[in-house]
């Protein structure tokens, strides 16, 4: 495995969040990390991205990697347009014409060609998160981290956002870690699902999802066996 965490421990004061946690990331695949709210999923992403150092343990293949992040909230610069927001993260990587072409192409891929010149306050919540997705895929990252990015919008917008993510991922497969507490989201987007316990987070089970993603429908019963097994794990 090119990217992995080995025996990671992390505590905040007396609160142990990760205790001997290990995880391998499959290259070009979506690893959906499913766990209850507050179990340490965001801490896991922050350790992967190098934002938070672990107390102990080993990170393999991660220190030299570039990361893209789709946050719970879009985190767009209010004074910049959608296009400028995407271009901003490319400034250190690409020259001007390539940067603009790449940003425009990604905005088109998420259906925002006509809104490239608008500022975040002029966009809906779903459109802002689409810009955030375009930004994440425009950036030449080795690993893409998604921190429950579909939570703050209504169901229809959520499905639209997830489909936009899947289109981008199909066109340009990335190594993705997607954390969520929604079982249906994990089953819709993941190539495999890792189910976590409550704090300190440990892996209860790993499920490989063999059904091709283009045959999955959000909320359908195609993966009902897996879904039922996950609910049994979560609910004990």
């Amino acid at each position: 495995m090119p990217y992995s965490l080995r025996d990671i421990r992390k505590s905040y004061g007396n609160l142990s969040v990760l205790d001997g946690f290990s995880l391998d990331l499959a290259e070009g695949k979506v690893t959906a990390v499913l766990g209850p709210s507050g179990c340490g999923k965001t801490t896991l992403l922050n350790i992967l991205a190098g934002l938070v150092p672990p107390d102990s343990g080993e990170l393999q293949g991660l220190s030299e990697s570039r990361f893209s992040y789709v946050f719970q909230e879009p985190r767009l610069v209010p004074s910049l347009t959608a296009l400028e927001n995407v271009e901003l993260v490319l400034r250190a990587v690409f020259g001007s014409p390539e940067r603009r072409d790449r940003a425009l192409s990604l905005l088109a891929a998420v259906g925002l060609s006509g809104s490239a010149g608008l500022r975040p306050r002029q966009l809906s919540g779903g459109m802002r998160q689409r810009v955030s997705l375009a930004r994440a895929f425009a950036y030449p990252a080795d690993i893409l981290l998604l921190d429950e990015p579909f939570q703050s919008v209504d169901l229809r917008t959520r499905i639209g956002l997830m489909d936009a993510f899947l289109d981008l991922q199909t066109a340009d497969p990335r190594t993705v870690v997607f954390v969520t507490h929604e079982v249906k989201e994990a089953l819709y987007l993941g190539d495999r699902v890792v189910v976590l316990s409550d704090k300190p987070a440990r892996i209860l089970d790993r499920k490989e999802l063999l059904l091709p993603r283009n045959r999955r429908r959000f909320g359908s019963s195609d993966l009902s066996d897996v879904e039922a097994a996950i609910y049994r794990l979560i609910l004990g």
């Binding site: 991205a49 934002l51 570039r66 990361f67 893209s68 992040y69 946050f71 909230e73 985190r75 610069v77 901003l88 993260v89 400034r91 250190a92 930004r135 950036y139």
Partner: peptide, 16 residues
């Protein structure tokens, strides 16, 4: 601080 964290993750240049 959310934007600053974003800037750190995407390795924005200091001038940007």
């Amino acid at each position: 601080p959310g934007l600053l964290e974003m800037a750190r993750l995407f390795r924005l240049r200091k001038r940007d």
